[in-house]
Every structure is written in structure tokens, then in C-alpha cells.
Design a protein around this nucleic acid. Sequence first.
DNA 1: ATGCAACCATAGCCGATATCTATGGCTTAT
DNA 2: ATAAGCCATAGATATCGGCTATGGTTGCAT
Lengths: 299, 299
Amino acid sequence: MNLRDLRYFVTLADTGHFGKAAERCFVSQPTLSAQIKKLENYLGVQLIERQPRRVALTEMGTKILPLARRMLQESDEIVALARNEHDPLSGKLKVALIPTIGPYLLPLLMRKLRRKLPRLKLMLYEYQTQPLLDKLRAGDIELGILALPVPLDGLEARALYREPFTVAVPNNSDLAKKANVKVEDLSGETLLLLEDGHCLRDQALDVCGRIEARESEDYRATSLETLRQMVAAGLGVTLLPELATRGPFGSGQGLTVKQFARPVPARTVGAVWRKSSARTEAINAISAVIETTMKEIKK
Amino acid sequence: MNLRDLRYFVTLADTGHFGKAAERCFVSQPTLSAQIKKLENYLGVQLIERQPRRVALTEMGTKILPLARRMLQESDEIVALARNEHDPLSGKLKVALIPTIGPYLLPLLMRKLRRKLPRLKLMLYEYQTQPLLDKLRAGDIELGILALPVPLDGLEARALYREPFTVAVPNNSDLAKKANVKVEDLSGETLLLLEDGHCLRDQALDVCGRIEARESEDYRATSLETLRQMVAAGLGVTLLPELATRGPFGSGQGLTVKQFARPVPARTVGAVWRKSSARTEAINAISAVIETTMKEIKK
DNA sequence: ATGCAACCATAGCCGATATCTATGGCTTAT
DNA sequence: ATAAGCCATAGATATCGGCTATGGTTGCAT
């Protein structure tokens, strides 16, 4: 069966006239005639009674007409649905961020995202790097924002901004008094870290790998905020990504945040998505928004 | 848009695999691949994300899938509807009979019709000849049973049986005593007739045209039954079609029905339908039932 | 009654397109 | 590293929808 034939049939039923129906369908009369006959043949029933002066529906035609109408209407619905959301910058988009980025980056982004991509409905999730990548590959989410590099198989990545690390020390620490802190200054300090699974933990270990800072054996924080509490309580020092030290998250309450001296250790934050993703346009648009937002902040 | 493409799409969504979907659709994989791409192109949206190991629906594909499913289901419904009632001897059929035939013929027919054409749902109507022909031409009914001949333009007719006329006289009439009645015997009698519009009226006038029977000026009956009452009341004589004198409708209650002597005047009862009718098979079947029924009765 | 106009069906041809096989490119698994 | 799985591409072919021209009825008007 063919939707075109159904359209011919419905038009013929409406006009009661092969010639007029053909005209309305923008085909010749013999074409419509032949297709109607083909449809009747396929269904094995006569739909139309060809009376001399007009055509009339048979009982079967009367029964089938509303069904045909509904099908055509639904096909129009599909087209309308597709055409309406033709815009690649609309619809839902599932985005996940790692916990050490999400809470600090999103507040900076949301206003601009809403302005630049008003039709994009972002569904936001928070996962650690590995689960995020798994869900990305599984198609559960479309875009991940995390620290690069990560193993990319079937995935594509784009660096968005460089995020310096800072060091958070108790107010009463000697380090709190220095103008800036060199990585080596951390030698001998007790290093507080997040629990396993957080990439920040690995990054911090990486930064401090060459020196002799000791990781605290007893405590592993589950979030940057608990980590911050632990530093303020004087249990040790820790590295914080710069965004987690801005605004309300800065120094204070027993804790001092210090810049690193050059070369400033940093991590690269980027976007990751499936190579095969159908939403690359939206992904690029979001990436661009993040990039420009971060550039503006740096100034 | 094409139903075939929707079927490909739905199957692909079900299998998650171009090759398997193609196999299930009995086409080659490139064919299905191309058609899916064509559909996406037509809709202007990507429906399928081609991941390395499996294919996944995009958000749009997820939205469209149920609509596509429903359309296919409805197309199947249409086919099923047509195929089920493929049988030309099923469905509704609107049949009209003239008043001087219907009440007397139908009781003889119904049992056999129900047995021979069990799936045919007869909608029965009663109209006088002219309205019947009008409604036939208008497509309001499919078949008419009436007295032939009638003007046939665009209509087709088939004679079914010959129906002799009888003469109904009051019990106390001289005619009631004769073995049989010649047409000429009616000379001088008062002839009671149906009102205008009934073909039986014209037929009776035709039969009695050559002789000098006088039509009653005062009374015109609206039905055979009132006509019968009038004869029994001694107001005159009338012609009755033979079927209207059978069984419970025979002599009695002050009225005697006499056969005519040869040549017995008679009318031809036939079926009439539109030449273009889509139900000729059913019409032929009904006609055949009437014919054989009447032959059996004659014996 | 005869010719004409309206209308659907048929015939024959053509171009679009759905389909096939063969093959290429990419990814993943062994 | 090699092979296997899988979708896309390329090119050939067949099917089918489309057109024009024409035929056959029917109904209408002169």
C-alpha cells in the first residue's frame, strides 16, 4: 500500500470526480485513475463505483475512507513534528558533568546558555568520569564535560578551557602567609584527596607526584565541599580547581586559597561525545558558549 | 513519505541492526540503508544514530517511532478490513421492494436467503416504483425488486418470475361461482384500484383496458390490504397479484379469489440495479435465490 | 435523432526511483 | 596484526508512477 494512493483515494472521495481529484493532486487523470485501480486491486475490493455522472463510494470505500484520512493526517503529523524541530538547536539534550566541574561551572553558564540556545532543553546529570564515559557510549547521555584526556574510542573530544589548580591551606598554615606557592612547597604537607573515582584525585596525585607530600591515610572526601571542611579543620592541604574557589567558594572560614607560582599546574576541561552523535551541532554550540564564557572570565 | 520506508524504520528500530532489519524486510542491506537515509532526508532530521556496534534512535526517532508504528498498524487494519470482507457475498446490501411485492415475497424468501447468503446483511426498504428508481440512481439503495418493464437508463434489469394476476370478488358476486374468470367477464363491474403511484394500478388498468369495467370514482386504496377489505365489503372487484393471495392472504372473510382463464394476465417481476454497481455478484446471488424459490413454488 | 461534450479507461512511452551486487571504509575482536 | 562485522557508496537494472494520445460510454442539446 502506498500513502500516495490513499491520498488519491481520499481526494477522489472528496471531489467525486476523477478529473478534479487528479487536478487537486497535481497529476493527470489517467495517473490517478490507474493508481485508484491499483489500490482496489491490492485490497481486493472495489472502493469506488464509477457512475456516469459522478463517482460514489462503495460500502467498503465508506468504511476505509476514515481510516485512510487518519493515516494521512498522521503522516502529516510526523512531517510537522520533524519540521518543527528541524532546528538542530532545539529539543532535549542530555549533558553530564563531573562533580568537580558541574556545581562550579554551571552557575557561570546558565544565563548565557538560556540566552544563546533558548530552544535547547538541557537535561543535566552528574557522574564521575568513568560512569560518564560509559553512559555516553551507551547513548544515555549525549555530551560529557570533564577533564581531558580520557581514552577516546568511538568518542570525540574538544578542549574547552584550561583550569589552573589552586592550593587550599588552613588559615594558620605557614603556606597561608606566602605570596604564592610553589608545588615543592607542599613537600612534607599532609595531602587531603577525594575518594577513588574522582579524576581530581588522580590529577592532584599527578601534580604532587615528584614531591614528598603524604596522602592522609584516614580520610578520603566524597566531595570538594567536605574536602574544604577538612582543610579548614586543619587536617591538611589540598588542591582545588580554580572554579571551585570563586565567589562564595573562596577563602574564609578557616581556609585560605593560594595561587600556584608559575608554571601553574592545571587541567584541561573538555567536551566529549560520540563520534556518531546526531547532535554535533548542538554540542558545538554548547562548547562554544563554554569557551567564550571562560575566556571572558579570565579577563 | 512512503509506508515502506516507515516499515523499514520501525524494523530497524526493533532490530537495532541494518542487516537484520533488511533481512526481515526481504531487501538487501544497502536498499534499507538508502531508504532510511532518504526518509531522514525528507523529514530533515536524523532518526538513527549509527553507532559502531549497534544503531540507536535519536530523540527525534524516539518521538516518531510510535507514530510510525500506529500508521503501519492502521494500514494493516485497512488491509484486514478489505481482506475479511473480500467476499462479495458479505456486507450490507440495501434492497427495496415495491409495496405490492415486498410483504408477500419476503416471507417466502427469508429462510432461503439466510441459508444461502448468511453473510449478507440485507437492509430492506419499501418504495413505490418511481421513488425506488430514484433512490437506486442516487445510490441510496443497491437493488430494487419491482414489476418490469421500467425505463432503464444507466440501470440494468433481470426478469425473475412471472406473476399471474387473480381477481378478487365479493363472495356474493356472480363471478364467485364461476370455475374461472375471463377478463371480459369483468365488463360492467366496478373496478377497485390502488392510489396513484402504485404500478399495480397501471397494470390493472392495462389488463382491463379493452373492456368496459368502470373504475370506482370514490375510493382509491392505499394498500392491497385495504383494497381487499373494500372488495369484501362489496364495493367492487379488483386484480390481485398471485403472491398476495397465498396462504393467509387467500379467499375468506367475504372475499373470493378466482384464477383467470387462459391467457392468464400476468406481470413480470424483476431485479433492477445500477449498471455501475459494485455489488453485481451479491445481486446475482439474490436474484438466483428469488428465481429458484419461485420455481419451486410453482410446482 | 444526431452530434457534441463530459468523463473515465486503455495504450504506449518515458523518466524517476527502488532494488540488486560488488566493494570500500571504519571499528572491534581475536 | 589480521580478520570479521557492519554500514555506506557505486553502478547497473527493473519496477513503477507519470504523461500524452486516444477510445468508449453516457448524458445533453440542438
